[in-house]
Simulated scan of single mutants.
Amino acid sequence: MIRYTLICDQDHRFDSWFQSSAAYSTLEKAGHLACAVCGSGDVKRALMAPSVPAKGNTKDEAPQKAVASADPAPLSAPMSDAEAAFTRMRKEVEEKSDYVGLSFASEARKMHEGDAPERPIYGEAKLDEAKKLIEDGIPVAPLPFMPKRKTN
C-alpha cells in the first residue's frame, strides 16, 4: 500500500491510500479520482516528502516512527475559515433540503408550474437541463459541491 497526498483544483489537500503507484496511475488516467472535500474530478498528487525510516530501524520500528511524525490534525478538520464555512453550508443544505437526485430538473419544473408543492430541494442536472431551467425563468443555482454518494 502507498499513501499519497492529493490536491484538487480548488486547493483542497487530502490523503488517500492506493495498492501501488501503478494503481494510482490507472485510476488517475481513467478519471476515477475525486476530491474528498468538494468532489472535483481535477485531482493530482501534491508535492510531498517521502516517508523513509532512518538507517538501522527494523521493520517493527519504522511504522511507529512514521506515525509519530505524522500531522496530528485529523483529515476531517477544516484547513481554513473558507473551508469551515463551506462545510457549514453543505451541512445546512443537506439537513434542510430534500435530495432528489437526477430528477432535479423535472422536480424544479413541477414546483415552478404548481404541479408539486414548493420545498427546498437539491440534486443533479445535466448542463443542458440546467440551462433550460434558467432560460424558462425557473430560479436555480449551482451548488459548490457534489452530493455525497453512498459507496459500498
Results as ranks from 00 to 15, higher is better:
Glu94Trp: 03
Ser25His: 12
Arg13Lys: 07
Arg13Cys: 07
Glu83Trp: 11
Ala108Pro: 00
Ala22Pro: 00
Ser21Pro: 05
Arg119Gly: 04
Thr58His: 11
Ile138Phe: 08
Leu133Asn: 02
Leu27Gly: 02
Cys8Arg: 03
Lys91Ala: 11
Met1Trp: 00
Gly123Met: 13
Ala54Cys: 05
Lys132Thr: 08
Tyr24Leu: 14
Thr151Ser: 10
Gln64His: 09
Ala73Pro: 02
Glu83Val: 09
Phe104Ser: 15
Ala30Gly: 10
Glu83Met: 10
Gln64Trp: 11
Leu47Asn: 04
Phe14Ile: 13
Pro53Ala: 14
Cys35Thr: 06
Tyr4Trp: 08
Ala34Gly: 11
Ile121Pro: 02
Leu27Tyr: 05
Pro63Thr: 06
Tyr4Thr: 12
Gly123Val: 08
His12Thr: 06
Ala54Ile: 05
Lys126Asp: 12
Ala108Asp: 07
Pro142Ile: 01
Asp136Val: 00
Lys131Ser: 04
Ile2His: 06
His112Gly: 10
Asp71Phe: 01
Lys132Ser: 03
Pro63Arg: 02
Lys126Cys: 05
Thr87Pro: 00
Leu133Ile: 02
Glu118Phe: 00
Glu113Gln: 15
Ala36Ser: 13
Ser25Glu: 15
Glu118Asn: 02
Asn152Ser: 07
Lys150His: 04
Thr87Asn: 04
Phe86Thr: 00
Ala77Met: 09
Ala116Pro: 00
Met1Tyr: 01
Pro142Arg: 09
Tyr99Thr: 11
Asp71Met: 07
Gly137Thr: 01
Phe145Ile: 13
Asp9Ala: 04
Leu133His: 01
Phe104Ile: 14
Ala141Leu: 09
Lys150Glu: 12
Cys8Phe: 02
Asp60Leu: 09
Val37Trp: 02
Pro50Glu: 09
Pro144Asp: 15
Phe86Ile: 03
Pro142Val: 06
Gly123His: 12
Leu33Ala: 08
Met79Asn: 04
Val43Trp: 00
Lys131Phe: 04
Ile2Val: 08
Val100Tyr: 08
Arg149His: 11
Arg119Glu: 13
Ala141Pro: 00
Lys96Ile: 05
Ser25Cys: 09
Asp60Tyr: 03
Ala36Cys: 06
Tyr122Leu: 14
Glu92Ser: 13
Lys65Pro: 00
Val67Cys: 03
Asp15Ile: 13
Ile121Gln: 03
Ala46Glu: 04
Gly56Tyr: 05
Glu113Ala: 15
Tyr99Ile: 12
Val67Asn: 04
Ile121Ser: 11
Cys38Leu: 12
His12Lys: 08
Arg13Trp: 03
Asp81Arg: 03
Gln19Phe: 01
Gln19Ser: 11
Pro74Lys: 14
Ala54Met: 09
Ser69Trp: 08
Pro139Ala: 13
Lys132Ala: 08
Ala62Lys: 01
Ser106Glu: 14
Arg90Val: 13
Val43Tyr: 01
His12Ile: 10
Ala66Pro: 00
Ser40Phe: 00
Gly123Asp: 14
Ala82Thr: 04
Pro120Gly: 06
Arg109Trp: 14
Leu75Lys: 10
Val67Ile: 11
Glu83His: 07
Lys44Leu: 10
Pro147Asp: 14
Tyr24Asp: 10
Ser97Met: 12
Arg3Gly: 07
Arg3Thr: 09
Pro120Asp: 14
